[in-house]
Every structure is written in structure tokens, then in C-alpha cells.
Design a protein around this nucleic acid. Structure first.
Lengths: 420, 420
DNA sequence: CTGGACGGGTCAAAGGTCTA
DNA sequence: CTAGACCTTTGACCCGTCCA
């Protein structure tokens, strides 16, 4: 940006003489910037008629306009500002009658400053220090250790993967309706991408393996829903899967349609209304991911802190636009709700033998393929021993709860994470 | 350093009258408010009527009207437009907590822009360059009618009721452990109080009756949990019910203990750590209450707006403490989760004939005693007809979902609300 | 039809940057 | 560190359109 401007400016400077002429002829006051093509040292040659106004009242150098109340050159302008800002006190080594002109103006600061005042400069016109213009300090927006750029990069990875697999047409009407098989296929794809996503977060990688598995599993359903909701933002009433199949408002299987409808109503619509940005979405995913509750985590405090950082980043990303941050966070309860309904549906389908699920899906979404259930939520549950008898009967006890009750150690998932 | 400079400068501001003279004599144009020592010439227009309303919401300078959604001065107006137009990204050199007032507004552009958003400016109101002649008058989002004082008053009612019934001793150890009967008794008490609470909110009372019933029922479980968590804040590992019974960490029935444990871990502990205030709690309850999702509401937009107002109030109540607002909102997902687990537990107990529940409890918590289930979430569900076949079999389909699927019209609850 | 509100634009004069 | 040439940002002021 800045570079571009500079280049433009350099390219345009040939026109400055012409402009200068125009300025002089039409008495256009100093212009300068906007396009950068006009050089500010314009009204110089107009010494004859209006010479007084274009001369520096302090040193008789060419003035660049009025500054702090007196027509003055850039040198005296800067000198006055620095003197006032830094509250300098000078003293004259001679007689306080030094000549201040273009050549000798730097020989006595005391007399120069005095002449500034005499010429009409007012210290009140000097303002407080401002913000740095050069914002490209590359002041990496980092909260604690999580940085927005890492999250954005992770996000791109997740987003671009499927695009590489299948070049999409943007016409939603030509896409095929997903059956159960395609839904499962897409889910599996997305879950693998979730693992890839997580690997992009260094803070995740330095967690103990059990916690990594736990995090990946605990909210995998929410990630699927969140991802599909986002992918479907541009489309009306149609859910677009990662493998380019769609779920239309009607015509899909009942259970699928029900979940799809809720995704539309409770997630896509609000998100669309908010016009969620990439940054915001990246933060939201991270907040969902680092949920410290209910997962039997070994280091819940670390996870809690990561979520805290992520939510500060989200806050930042929303620029505190009135109410926006809250609206985004309030997406999470319905997200959780829809995700659970999806898991319930899957579980039921599984129980009724209606669908054959991949082992990855079973492990991540249903929490199966693990050792026997081991208590809820946190590792140090004092009532844990009492609970096993209930958890041991998943057929009668709702799977929502069983799902959150599994011990983390497992094969497939752990193997997928481990080689990182 | 910076502070020193400012202080030093303030010390130097004598001689303003002299300056004014100078201004007049030298025909320096009145530039007004920078230093405040020069009176603006144009103060004629709107100054008389409302001194308070003509203040810039961002920097407290004199406002020139509403710009981009917020009463603001010309400076903040221009700043916002430039920032949006040029897609500027600022960063704060400090802690993102810079003071933005008339004097210091130029010292941190990040914090100034942030405050613009916070004051209600919307980037959509900035038009694209100079082409869109369309007069999409940005409709005013009036920051609504909900007031914190009303919420606080409603809260006191709910809190004080049980205190009147039983003068408490503060010694937690002398209280009796609750059995299933006492838990149910307390629940019923609290649910009736919830109705009372809601009646204190005028905006609730002017909703259609069906929506009132729906709101009361949909999140009744969350209200119970939220209330009990708050009541238990002072105690360690003990849950205090509204009827003065307790649920100790051990020794209660298994199902009760499990929920109690999660309440402790996921709600009481975080809330205690935050030291939640009365205002914040009142707002949180209201946010939970006015959940626009998943309830078959007739006027979801009104409810959504009420929740929006409540969350703005919460934001205000947190006094901008870094991250506090987010932490409070992130209480909601675990609250929902625990509430559902409780409902599941109740449902199971009901199915197994282990507990005889009051009809109010059944209606509000389990969603029973109503007409047949009528589809999920929203009234205009296109797949609604397809869904009934699944919802009609609550015995096999998890009750979590059934619970959220009930139609609002019912007897007991409606009767309780109606005479208001 | 008129005046206030609120979009847009302008540009003098603030500010900051950066090399010598 | 200061000087000063050079570039950006600020905000007071003005214009045009819409609508009550």
C-alpha cells in the first residue's frame, strides 16, 4: 500500500512543474497530497505581488504555508514544534539580538525561538504527540502466544484442501444431492482436515497426546457443523458439503434434512447476517476447539488459557463493533445443540443398523472404539467410581452423555496425530 | 515520557487571551477546539436544546449530529470514514485500553476506531467512494428498551423469595442432604420463581402468550442450573438448593451427584473465579432467557433483539475488563450442556418409574403434558411434516431433542402466566 | 417547500518520517 | 541528537439529497 503510493508518487512527479504553474496562475493554495503528484513547495515564485506571505516570517526562507500562526518554512515549523514539545529552554550566548535568517538560523536557538513567537507562532497550536503513522510496524497481533496469523493460516489449509480435490463450479443447482454415503464421506474428509488444522497450531502440538486426542474428539461434531455452515453461507437454503454434494431444503433423507434445516436457521442465517469475516471465523473455530469443559483433560488450565487468548483475538477481530463480539459468541450454544442432534441421529442410525460408519467417524463422533467409558468431564471427579455403572450401559443412557464420557486413548486418532 | 510531555505542556498554557488577541489582529481563522482556548464561531446552531445529546460518543467533543450510526464530532466522523474506506488496520502500541477523548483521540488510532465501533458506528454506513447514489438510509437500530435496573429488580424478587420462606443459617454444614423429593420440591419452587421473574420484564409481558410459554419452558432447565450455581458460589463443593437443602460432594444419589459435580466444575468454579456481579448475573439470565433459537417462536426477531439488548447491557456491566465479557458468555455452552444432562437424567428416572414428578416439572422440564410434538425449533420449517414421525416416538429417540421439540401451548404454564 | 440530518468531498495546517 | 525536506492525517467547513 505504502509502497504503491510511493511508486505512484515517483511516477507522477514529472507533472509538478505544470501544477506549480497552475497553482501560481490560479492562486490555488498549497495542495500537496491526495495523489501525491503535487509538490508542496508551490507558491515560491510569487514573490512580486504577494511576496510577504510566501516568506518565512522568522528566517525569510521560502514559506510552506502558515504554521502555528505564522507563515513559515518547514525548518522553523519543525524547530518550533520540537522546542515546544520537548519544552526546551535555550539561552543566548551573545546579546539576544542574533540575526535569524536562512543561513544563520541555526546559530542561536534562543533567538530563533524568540523570533518564532514574535512572528506570531503560538505554542497552543502545537498539539499532543499523535499515533505513529507508520503502522506497518508489523506489530504482530499476538495475544499471549496465539497469533491471528497462525489461525488464519491454519484456516486456509482447511479451506483449500477440498478445493484442490475437486474444482468447483459455482452453480449450486448443478450439484448432486448427498445421500447418507456422501454425507459420511464428507464427514470423514472434514475430520481429517480438522486434524490437519490442529497441527497448524503450535500450542496444540505441545499438549500431551491424550489431550490432543480428547480435544479433537470432543468437539469434532461442532467443527463439522461449523465448517459446513460456513461453506453454505453464500447459498440460500442449501447446505454445501465439502465433497461438493449438496443437501437441498427438501428431498434429502428425513434425518439429514432436519439437521440441515437447523444449520440453516440457527447458524447460516445469523452468520450471514453478521457477514462473518475470515479472522472472526478462525477465532470462533479456535474457541470451539479449546473448550476446557467436560473432556477429561489432563491440562484443562492450559486449554482454558488458549481459549481465553482466542476469545481476546476474536474481540480484537470484531473491532468491538457494537454487539458483534457477543453475537458471534452466542452462535456457540446453538452450534453445540445442532452438533449434538447430529450425533444423536448418527447414533440412532448406527443402533438401528441403518448406516455403516467408518471407524474414524465412529471414534471421533460417537466416541466408540475406545476403552470402556471412564467418567465424565474431568479427570479428578470424586464421584467417578459411582458413575461407571451408568456409563456402562450406553444402550439405555443417552449417547449424548456417553459421547462426552469416553477416555481419550485410542488407536486410529492417536496414530493420525502422533507423527507430527 | 509521553505523560511527562503532556503534563509539561499543560503547565505552559498561560497567555490564551494574548493568543486570542493575536488571532483577531492577524486574521487567523478561528480553528476552535484544538486547545479549547478559542471559541468556535459556529456554535450557534444546535447548542441550546440538549447539551448532553450533542456530545460525541467517541471522544466527548461536541457532536455535529449522528454519523454512521453514532452521535459524533466531525473529527471522528472523518476518521471513521477514512479508516473504513482505506481499509486501515491499526494496532495499539499499548494495551488496547487507551483513553479516547478530545485531547487524546489522535494518540491511538486503534483504540479510537475501536471506540467508534463500540459507540455504534457501522462500517456499512460508509458508502463506497462516490458512486452509490442509492439512498439506502441506514435504518437506526435503537438501543432498546431493556434497562439494567428492571433486570436487577426482577433478580431481587427471585432471590428474596426463598429467603422469606426460610430464614437461613449460613452454616452450610448443618443443612440436610437433599433426596430426590427435596430436589424436585426445590425445582418446582424455582420454576415458579422463574415465572415471577419473567413477569417483571415488561418486554416479556408484551410478547404473544405462546411465545411467553415457549420461552419459559425452553430454557427452564438452564435457569434452574444457573440459579443453583449462583446460590452455591460461596460454598466449596456443596450445592445449595433454594429450599435450603444441600447436595454434598458425596453421599447423594448417583445421578444427582453427577450433575452436581458438573455444576461445581463447569459453572460454580469459573463464576467464582470471575466474581460475577449482580448486574452481570442479571444480564446473563436474561440472555439465556431470550434465546431466539430452537423454540418455535412466533416472533423470533423480537426475542433476538431483546437478547441483543441484554448482551449489550452485559458488556456494559463488565466495565470493559479485559476478556471478562467473553468469559461470561462462554459460561453458556457448559450451562446448556449440564442442563441437558439434568433433563436426560430426569427423563430416564421418569421412564424407569423411579421418580414421581410434579406436573409443572413435567411440563416445563420434560416438555410433557402438551399436545403432540410439533417439529423442531422454528414455526416455518419446510421439513416439518417429515419430522413428526420421528418426534412421535420419544421412547426411542433421545429426549434431549424431543424436549426442544414441543409445541408451546399448554395448560398449567399458560394459566400461570395468563393472569398477569 | 423548507430545513434539519446525514451522506460526500475539500484542503489548510496539524502530524510523522527519516537521512544527513 | 537535531534540522528540515517530504509525506500523511486531521477536522472545520461546505455541498447535495432525502424526508418530515
Amino acid at each position: 500500500m505504502k509502497l504503491t503510493r510511493t511508486i505512484l508518487k515517483l511516477e507522477c512527479t514529472h507533472g509538478s512543474t505544470e501544477t506549480k504553474l497552475l497553482n501560481n496562475m490560479m492562486l490555488v493554495p498549497l495542495r500537496a497530497n491526495k495523489t501525491g503528484s503535487v509538490v508542496s513547495a508551490s507558491s515560491s515564485s510569487l514573490s512580486g505581488a504577494d511576496g510577504a506571505k510566501t516568506q518565512c516570517f522568522i528566517c525569510a526562507d521560502r514559506a510552506t504555508g502558515k504554521h502555528y500562526g505564522a507563515p513559515s518554512c518547514d525548518g522553523c515549523k519543525g524547530f518550533f514544534r520540537r522546542s515546544i514539545r520537548n519544552n526546551h529552554t535555550y539561552s543566548c550566548r551573545f546579546d539576544r539580538q542574533c540575526i535569524v535568517d536562512k543561513d544563520k538560523r541555526n546559530q542561536c536557538r534562543y533567538c530563533r525561538l524568540r523570533k518564532c513567537f514574535k512572528a506570531g507562532m503560538r505554542k497552543e497550536a502545537v498539539q499532543n504527540e499523535r499515533d505513529c503513522i507508520n503502522s506497518q510496524r508489523a506489530k504482530e497481533q499476538t495475544v499471549g502466544t496465539l497469533s491471528i496469523s497462525v489461525l488464519l493460516q491454519a484456516e486456509t489449509t482447511v479451506q483449500q484442501f477440498p478445493a484442490l480435490l475437486s474444482p468447483r463450479s459455482h452453480d449450486i443447482t448443478t450439484k448432486k444431492t448427498a445421500g447418507v454415503g456422501e454425507v459420511f464421506e464428507s464427514m470423514k474428509q472434514q475430520l481429517l482436515l480438522l486434524v490437519e488444522w490442529a497441527k497448524h497450531i503450535p500450542e496444540f502440538c505441545s499438549l500431551p497426546i491424550d489431550d490432543r486426542v480428547t480435544l479433537l474428539r470432543t468437539h469434532s461434531a461442532e467443527h463439522l457443523i461449523l465448517g459446513v455452515a460456513r461453506r453454505s453461507l453464500p447459498y440460500n437454503n442449501v447446505i454445501l458439503l465439502g465433497n461438493d454434494f449438496v443437501i437441498p431444503p427438501r428431498g434429502a433423507e428425513v434425518e439429514i434434512s432436519r439437521v440441515a434445516f437447523r444449520i440453516q436457521e440457527e447458524l447460516v442465517k445469523p452468520l450471514r447476517e453478521l457477514v462473518i469475516t475470515d479472522k472472526e471465523f478462525a477465532c470462533l473455530r479456535t474457541i470451539v476447539f479449546f473448550a476446557p469443559d467436560c473432556s477429561g483433560l489432563k491440562s484443562p488450565q492450559v486449554v482454558r488459557h488458549l481459549r481465553f487468548q482466542a476469545h481476546l483475538l476474536l474481540e480484537e477481530a470484531t473491532c468491538e463493533q457494537r454487539g458483534r463480539f457477543g453475537e458471534l459468541l452466542l452462535i456457540l450454544p446453538p452450534l453445540q445443540s445442532v452438533a449434538w442432534q447430529m450425533v444423536e441421529t448418527l447414533h440412532l442410525a448406527q443402533l438401528l443398523g441403518e448406516a455403516k460408519m467408518d471407524s474414524l467417524l465412529q471414534e471421533m463422533l460417537l466416541g466408540e472404539g475406545t476403552e470402556t467409558g471412564q467418567g465424565v468431564c474431568t479427570g479428578n471427579d470424586p464421584t467417578q467410581d459411582q458413575q461407571n455403572d451408568l456409563n456402562a450401559s450406553p444402550a439405555t443412557f443417552p449417547s449424548v452423555i456417553c459421547h462426552a464420557s469416553m477416555a481419550p486413548t485410542s488407536g486410529f486418532l492417536a496414530a493420525h496425530i502422533d507423527w507430527h
